[in-house]
Amino acid sequence: METDFTPIASFFGGMLIGASALLLMASHGRIAGISGIFSRWLNNQDSPTSTNSVFLIGLFLGLPLFSVISGTTPQIQSDSPFIVMMIAGLFVGYGTVSGNGCTSGHGVCGLSRLSIRSLVATGTFLVSGIVVMFLTRHVFQG
């Protein structure tokens, strides 16, 4: 499935993500890592839970609000079978808690702090993802 290269929209959207991360650190002193916020909220761990809850409510409202204001629905193309999506979810949940972060926590916030752990984690999940993508698209499915 081809997708359009969108450097300007992607850079601008990225700047909003950066602004969000900066706001959460300035206001609450917290890293805006979604896997961390979500897993701590699930575990009722690392209070104040209310901060995580309110952040997540905001996160859930972004897509509906964007659709209402812009009058457009963003493209969401998912071609993975349901069972593959479930296995993927399991891997992502296990992996982000075990590895203490995801694309936002390690890839954005960690790299911005020049953290060696985040650099290694980001390099590792990029290589892992690229290898799996190569195997599923070019080796086993031709």
Partner: peptide
Amino acid sequence: PLIKGAVFFGMGWALSGLCPGPALTVLP
């Protein structure tokens, strides 16, 4: 655990095209 976690995360990320932020954003 950092390396193992990142390997699993990368696998799931590629299989679905989703990481936690987009997954929760698209949930509605």
